[in-house]
Design a protein around this nucleic acid. Structure first.
Lengths: 339, 339
DNA sequence: GCCTAACAAGACAACGTTGTCATTGAGAAG
DNA sequence: CTTCTCAATGACAACGTTGTCTTGTTAGGC
């Protein structure tokens, strides 16, 4: 195992000074053609690789890297966001460090700290905890931060979200218009802003339709697809089962689908889910969803981030990306079907 | 915007030497309790953040970061791998840089170079091109490399793959045992090793069953789900349509499902796909697939990588992870159903 | 032939940190 | 009281690179 060649080695082999090697490697002007050749051949001969870390230390302290902290990189939601951000970073020569937070508060701060230690120029964060003020001093020191999917608290940063409450309300309105009166709502951890917002939208929608929500049908704090299946089964087996279900996150929606299948009720109980998911259109019945434009969400987040990395101090921007109610079969099932 | 505090600033504020601050920050022994307190309070007061880049420069040159170069981070296949690797890296305090290659050869070398410039300690690579010898000198300099999903060429590195040909052959055997004789094969770019292997397995399976493959039914170089749909429609509309289809990658399988639906043949034509995909069990009919244990694949890759990062020179290991033929409905459709 | 640009090339310090070694002082052993 | 030991602390160089400044060389104008 041979040691890595440094500029010093290249300089020695080509018989020039360190600085001249630096100039050639960085493509700076003011080096004669002859020396450029000599240096380049030494670079090739020694397999010299530029060390960005050392370079950044001396230069303006930019590392050309960003951190992306999302919920779960395996989940298509996070994965699509990451990909959209990556596609903006690559042409800019910016490297992407990523991590799944699994909605763990302590992990959020821990991983953010790890990224700051590595001196990322920016951070795209899907906030987990209810307080991001730990980022304050880093932001003051020049760290660009964009909150995505959920707003940050305790610091003033650029934000890209969707109108969760509005979209949820619209979904409920859609079901109510079909004549549904017993509409259930399944949502995830109340600790998460989107879950609270979507639940709020559900309640607003119910109120707008003049419906009194049965609190037994409003189930929160579901942590997984499996728990959603369980909860749905209990609802379906109860004395007064719902005729329609609103599921507030894609994995919960899938859990609901499983439960409906188990009871053979997939064509009897209406369903609208928040977040589109792969194959939703190929299920039978195809599942009606509120789709977020994740490409746009990620692209906007990346744009805001890069803009802020360019010039740090500007008033923070709060962008709301539109959602689309994708009408498929499951959302069009009338209440009559359930008798 | 205030400049970032350095150890020098902390030392000045707490009235100790630079080295003492370094000792406290790194938790090294030999500092009196009183000074530890003084330093820690200065650290807190100045919001000092340790600079890993500078630290690594002086230390053993390990950056505590790895690069992960996969096909497409949005695709559940790559996303699951990334997540499995991330889950091994996190407890080790290792940061993960990732990138999608989209099967572009030039991007592979480019991104690998970008990671090497950042001095990652290791690289998990899903090789795209047919020559990875450009990594030779970096490996000699201590870079740990693991090839995943496909073997690397031109360098001797640890490898984690599955028995693509064997699994494909098994799938074809399954279909042949049901009595299918006209079995189509849809595969992706011949440039990709897995595509070639799976096609080879298909041909072996056909031969083993005493079947002569009709070359019009062996379609290669499909680049997307859409192209798979197109190709399937053409096959279905031909004079002698297949009674069963083998699709060599998850997105192609989905494309085939779409085509079968369009012709109303989803319960008439058998289908087995390579790679499981979300919701495959919830489609009607549920899709029979060859499932790879991606958690295991990613975990094994990460294990090999970390082992090699620990002690560089050991004979390279070539691991084959088992696949499972997940028998669902679409693979059990008999040929009679197609008349 | 002399002076001045203009340019090529190098010497040196600095980025933020840590390894190595020297210094200091206190307490133990004689 | 001296010498020795040991623990705590600090001075300094070094990691690989680049910004700044200096030096040297050559060509051109008078």
């Amino acid at each position: 195992m041979r040691m890595r060649a440094t500029m010093k080695d290249v300089a020695a082999l080509s018989g020039v000074s360190l600085k001249t090697v630096s100039r050639v490697v960085n493509g700076e002007p003011g080096v004669s053609e002859e020396l450029i050749q000599r240096v380049q051949s030494a670079v090739a001969q020694l397999d010299y690789r530029h060390n960005l870390a050392a370079s950044n230390l001396r230069r303006g302290h930019r590392t050309g890297s960003i951190g992306v902290l999302l919920h779960d990189l395996r989940n298509p939601f996070s994965a699509t966001l990451l990909r959209a951000i990556e596609d903006r970073a690559r042409p800019a020569g910016v490297a992407v460090l990523s991590s799944s937070l699994d909605d763990l508060q302590e992990r959020e701060a821990l991983m953010a700290g790890a990224m700051v230690s590595r001196r990322v120029d920016g951070l795209v964060l899907m906030p987990t905890g209810d307080d991001q003020s730990y980022l304050f001093s880093d932001i003051r020191a020049g760290l660009a931060v964009v909150a995505v999917d959920r707003p940050a608290r305790g610091v003033d940063v650029d934000t890209v979200v969707v109108d969760n409450a509005g979209a949820a309300q619209q979904a409920v309105a859609e079901l109510a218009a079909l004549g549904h009166r017993r509409i259930a709502c399944l949502s995830d951890s109340e600790q998460i802003w989107t879950a609270r917002e979507r639940r709020r939208g559900y309640l607003k929608g119910m109120a707008a339709a003049g419906l009194e929500p049965d609190e037994r049908m409003v189930v929160a704090n579901l942590r997984s697809s499996l728990e959603a299946t369980q909860a749905t089964l209990e609802l379906l087996d109860s004395a007064e089962p719902p005729t329609a279900i609103f599921a507030a996150r894609n994995d919960l929606t899938v859990g609901v689908v499983r439960a409906l299948r188990q009871r053979g009720l997939q064509r009897a109980v209406a369903l609208i889910g928040f977040d589109d998911f792969p194959m939703a259109d190929l299920l039978e019945p195809a599942v009606t969803v509120i789709a977020q434009d994740l490409e746009a969400l990620g692209a906007r987040a990346a744009d805001l981030l890069f803009a802020r990395m360019q010039q740090g101090s500007a008033p923070s921007q709060h962008v709301e990306v539109a959602t689309t109610l994708v009408l498929r079969e499951s959302g069009a099932i009338p209440p009559a079907a359930s008798r």
